[in-house]
Simulated assay, not measured.
Amino acid sequence: MLTVHHLGLSQSERIVWLCEELELDYEFKRYERIGGKGYAPPEYKALHPMGIAPVISDGALMLGESGAICDYICGRYGDGRLTPGPNHPDFADHLFWFHWCNGTFMATLMGGSVIQLAGTDISASPGAAFIADRTARAWDMIEARLGEAPFFGGRVLTTADIMMVYGLTTSRAMRGTSIDAFPNVRRYLSDIGTRPAYRRAMAKAEPAMEPVLT
């Protein structure tokens, strides 16, 4: 039985959404952070050697890492849905945004967060200008992409969107980032918010929080 182990306020909301979009029969287990927004509880950390979200189990398999989990679920249960094939005109764009999300975008955002967690004023850090430049470039790329196509992967929703939306919503809320200057992002999130599967997923993943779509 496919089980999604969801840690509250974490990237594992992606996997809940993926399962809802694919209309899969899966088990959902939610774990509360220690102190609300604090660390994962010991029972969650024990699931996987890295001790971080997301994690799924499927029979004897225990698998971590958002991208790997998306590929596994789509490959095993997706029947070709949400993943354009190599002959599809959106194939390359889908691949780029799917991998760019955690490889560049989330890594850049986390770089700033790590400096702050270390008790350092990011504005006084030697890497502040580097992080600020990469962050600005990332948001400009996102805005430009969503002016070119309705979804990150192209014409229709793909796992590139499953990956990207967390950084534009829940993660953004925790950082206090405004999207007032990004009309294409606002349009996109408004569209995402109308998807029944996304609403179901967020109601399961974060029942005490309205999806952060503005």
Rank of each mutant, 00 (worst) to 15 (best):
P89D: 06
L189H: 07
L22R: 03
T170F: 00
A40P: 00
S66V: 11
D191K: 08
G193V: 11
D121R: 08
I131C: 01
A208K: 12
Y26N: 12
D191A: 15
Y39W: 11
L168H: 04
M62R: 13
H99L: 12
A136G: 13
C74I: 06
I179L: 10
W100K: 05
M50G: 10
T177H: 00
S12C: 13
L168I: 04
F91A: 02
G111R: 02
V156E: 13
N102T: 13
L9V: 04
S12A: 12
E23R: 11
S190V: 04
L168Y: 05
P89T: 14
R137Y: 03
G35P: 01
A53H: 05
G119E: 01
G59Y: 04
M1I: 07
G127Q: 12
F130R: 15
T177I: 15
A205Y: 05
R137F: 06
E143P: 13
I131P: 14
L24T: 03
P207C: 06
L9W: 02
G78Q: 11
G67Y: 05
Y44T: 04
S190K: 12
G119V: 08
Y77A: 01
P41M: 08
S12I: 10
P183N: 07
G176L: 14
W17Q: 00
R81C: 15
I122N: 06
W100C: 02
H94Q: 07
E210G: 02
I115H: 08
G167M: 03
P196C: 09
R199W: 01
H88D: 14
R187E: 12
R30P: 01
L82H: 08
S57R: 14
M1L: 05
C74V: 12
S113H: 14
G119Q: 06
R172P: 00
